[in-house]
Amino acid sequence: MTQENSTLIIKDAETYFVVPISRPDFGSSGKTGSWRTERPVVNEEKCTKCLYCWLYCPEDTILRREDDMVYVDYDYCKGCGICAAVCPVNAIEMVPEVKRGEN
């Protein structure tokens, strides 16, 4: 988060006024997708466009096309797997970013 945006300060002779608000910018913590160990992969053939994954994603990284087909913003998806867990038709698979033993 950009520190200069973390507080609103109004300062003059009579008042010292600080409030606990922040105005986080898009991507101000860097590309958090690099934290991911598993990536959600959407199977478009199985997907029924129910949008559960889009509703439940805590990071707002399930994106929605005009035809309601979903896709993943891999720059910021942290790979929590909630989308895969809530999908009623198992159309989202969590795929390891690095195969076991590869490193």
Binding site: Q3, S6, T7, V18, V19, P20, I21, S22, R23, P24
Partner: peptide, 11 residues
């Protein structure tokens, strides 16, 4: 705007 999220001890 996010209200009340974590800030530095100084702030």
């Amino acid at each position: 705007i996010a209200m009340g999220n974590m800030t530095s001890d100084d702030d």
